[in-house]
């Protein structure tokens, strides 16, 4: 019962954060509402019993990605024109497209019926099971991911060098 209430609460929080991202003007406020959405999603994952994913959501998304984003916003000039006028010329087609998409979604969900119920916290997915399976069966994927991260580091250094060349 409490799990169910928490699920609805976090779902409402995630939705409110998503809507606020469209409406708010300053990028820092948008970043804060995105952080709120991500924390709500972490709450949903924890309520569902997928604690591993909830921890990763907080550590990787909120802890790393969004802190990086907030630093980037702080580095930039706040008097930019895109900070004062928020919408592009595609406002009306964009809103119409959004309404159409949500309408299609409601139609499909009503037609297809339930996608299968999941009780909050029914099958707790523990870190132990995840880590044993991860390093036994999916070690190759893990190594490939580390290659990807290495490529990202090399690319970031290349961009940094391009920046220096552009200045000089």
């Amino acid at each position: 019962m409490i799990g169910q209430a928490l699920l609805w609460f976090f779902a409402a929080g995630a939705l409110a954060g998503g809507v606020a991202m469209l409406v708010l003007r300053h990028p820092m406020h948008v970043a804060l509402s995105l952080i709120g959405t991500m924390l709500s999603l972490a709450g949903i994952y924890a309520a569902l019993g997928v604690h591993v994913v909830a921890v990763f959501q907080v550590l990787i998304y909120v802890g790393a990605v969004m802190v990086f984003m907030v630093y980037a916003i702080m580095l930039l000039d706040v008097r930019d024109t895109s900070f004062t006028s928020r919408y592009s010329g595609l406002l009306i087609p964009g809103v119409a497209g959004l309404a159409l998409f949500i309408g299609a979604l409601v139609y499909v969900l009503r037609r297809e019926g339930p996608v299968g119920d999941i009780a909050p916290g029914a099958t707790a997915f523990r870190v132990e099971r995840f880590s044993v399976d991860f390093l036994h069966e999916y070690w190759l994927h893990f190594e490939l991911t580390s290659v990807l991260l290495l490529a990202a580091v090399v690319a970031a250094i290349a961009i940094l060098k391009a920046k220096r060349r552009g200045d000089g």
Binding site: A14, L15, G18, I73, G97
Partner: peptide, 22 residues
């Protein structure tokens, strides 16, 4: 799906590149 739709709408509607990234 609604979060996806909101994100896509933001990508189309907003002008600021950082906001589009978010």
């Amino acid at each position: 799906a609604v979060l996806f739709a909101l994100g896509f709408a933001g990508l189309v509607l907003r002008r600021n590149v950082l906001v589009m990234l978010m």
